[in-house]
Write a protein that binds this DNA or RNA. Structure first.
Lengths: 341, 341
DNA sequence: CTGAAAGCGCTTACAG
DNA sequence: CTGAAAGCGCTTACAG
């Protein structure tokens, strides 16, 4: 690989001038510029990013932290990632998916390595040691999700509270008065207090109480098999329920299939509405589910904007944004039946 | 952030000695080591990876190139990524998912930046300009997948040829003689000659001809909706077919649902076998599909091994490995019916 | 076993 | 507009 010095030699200018030319950091005469560009072309020169990073103190790489333990990425997470990467590129950065353990120590290692200019954190827990660690570090960061206490912490998140309210009210309008929330909040996720689950449960409890509805909550695994099991359990435990909110992307299609195996016809006997999910997932189910679509693209884009604004020291007000889900109809929503299935 | 020089000052040793201590690159007396370690602790010192990378010429970061255009990652791709990342960590490297356009130019940019020590390439086309570009560069690389001509190119791939043979023979054993292969090879993928599709089609043609079967090929979109459409089309065009191989992970569940909407009962009227897919996807379908499981974990692991072996200059023979799929039963395989549906 | 010094490939005041 | 030189934070022959 040719170095900047090689280019300077060939062009008969100084190393500094090559740098000025490449970075447009100082005026360079057209003649000199031409010489330098010619030399770069001849040598097929590419600036070494590591040398540049050391001198500048910036690598122009952003890391999207991804919990390696979680062996499944939902379509919605993939959309976060894709839109975040696009936005980063648009603003002159590379965004990479950086898998790592959930421990704060791993975060420290990355942030203090100097390898990345900033961090976007996904899958945030209510009390997340990684966020504490990020706050302690001097590296800019932004959350997709949010902790319990968000003081001074830049984040973008789904407005789960309003999504739940919307979902419940849509079911009420169809005459449903006995609802169940199905989520994926068991096991690991509950321990750490996974934000989306905790917030959705709380909102569900409050909204249903306020509206005077019967309500219950169930949890299951993040897989189709988990969804089928949930359906079986649901049929046994909640024979009077006619409306279900499901926030468990991987289990959704299995749940719908399981309901039908248990004898329910959709939407005649029961209505199902997926929350914070995607059309992709909803259309995997048979029949296609109605869904409140997670604003994944927007979250990824805004998360990266929040991060880069900090890096570039735009002293904008601290970004703390909640984005709404949007409703997409499906064949799983219908009027409440007169009698139970 | 404290630098190595700060540590040296505090410990009253030279910068070099701190480096020797950290890297175990030269013997250091226990006394000196203790002083250095004490100083590091006090300053909460972390080695700056950029400085280290510049001096060593190694960043210890590997990139898994991921085509940014493709807005969906199949469960199988996620498994590649996860297992590759685990294996990299085990061997002292960080593996990150690096989204980029499909153009060779983007590859050049990355490889010549010095930011990564090696590259694993996914979603390989039969004639892939990115591979040409990687070969031209001096950076070590490995493919998950393979090009048409694999001379001198390290790769690991699914043995699609034998998977097709296995699949066809399983259907033959059940009495099926009229088969259709459903894939996702339309549009973009065909233009570039996407390896898995091309190889599977070729093998399907050869095996069915050799066994004297009726055979046809259909292609559809990579989505559940695409799968439903395919099923409709299939019902109309292939009324005599009783066995389907499907290699289109995103469309699988929708295809199975669509068949049933079209009046087929599975597996009485028709058998469906997913190829190079995952149990995850298979169990999204109702009923659960039988599947030849892609050896994604093994491919990710072996791909990274192949890459790191090159970086570490282990002059092993060029790794070129084909890994077999494994069969997992499902409720979509049954004896061929006497009459047509 | 330890240290002084050169060098990795850049950027950027500073001087002209 | 251009250049000589210091410096970013490390590693590693080389010398002792």
């Amino acid at each position: 690989m040719a170095t900047m010095q090689d280019v300077a030699n060939l062009a008969n200018v100084s190393l500094a001038t090559v740098s000025f030319t490449i970075n447009n950091s100082k005026p360079v005469s057209p003649k000199t510029r031409a010489k330098v560009e010619q030399a770069m072309k001849e040598l097929n020169y590419r600036r070494n990013a590591v040398g540049s990073a050391l001198a500048r103190g910036r690598t122009h790489v952003l890391a999207l932290l991804y919990p390696a333990l979680q062996h499944r990425l939902s379509p919605t997470s993939v959309r976060f990632f894709t839109s975040a990467a696009d936005q980063a590129r648009l603003r002159g950065y590379n965004l990479v998916l950086w898998p790592m353990s959930n421990e704060a120590e791993a975060v420290t290692e990355l942030t203090s390595s100097g390898l990345v200019d900033g961090v976007v954190l996904m899958e945030v827990q209510l009390d997340d040691p990684r966020v504490t660690e990020l706050s302690r570090s001097n590296i800019p960061f932004a959350l997709i999700g949010r902790t319990r206490d968000t003081t001074g912490i830049p984040f973008v998140d789904v407005n789960f509270e309003s999504a739940v309210e919307t979902a419940v009210d849509r079911l009420i309008q169809l005459g449903h008065t006995n609802l169940v929330l199905v989520d994926g909040g068991g096991g690991d996720q509950l321990l750490g207090g996974y934000g989306p689950v905790a917030r959705t449960r709380k909102a569900f409890g409050e909204v249903t109480a306020q509206r005077g509805l019967s309500a219950a909550i169930m949890s299951g695994l993040h897989s189709s098999a988990g969804g089928r099991d949930l359906a079986k359990e649901f049929a046994a435990q909640h024979p009077d329920t006619t409306g279900v909110l499901i926030m468990n992307e991987h289990a959704g299609p299995g749940f719908v299939a399981g309901l039908q195996q248990a004898g329910y016809r959709l939407p005649r006997d029961i209505s199902v509405l997926a929350i914070a999910s995607s059309v992709d997932t909803a259309s995997m189910a048979e029949p296609e589910m109605a869904v409140l679509i997670s604003p994944a693209d927007e979250l990824g884009r805004l998360g990266v904007d929040a991060l880069i604004d900090q890096i570039d020291k735009k002293d904008d007000p601290l970004p703390q944004l909640l984005i709404e889900c949007t409703y997409s109809p499906g064949a799983t929503m219908g009027k409440a039946p007169r009698k139970k299935p």
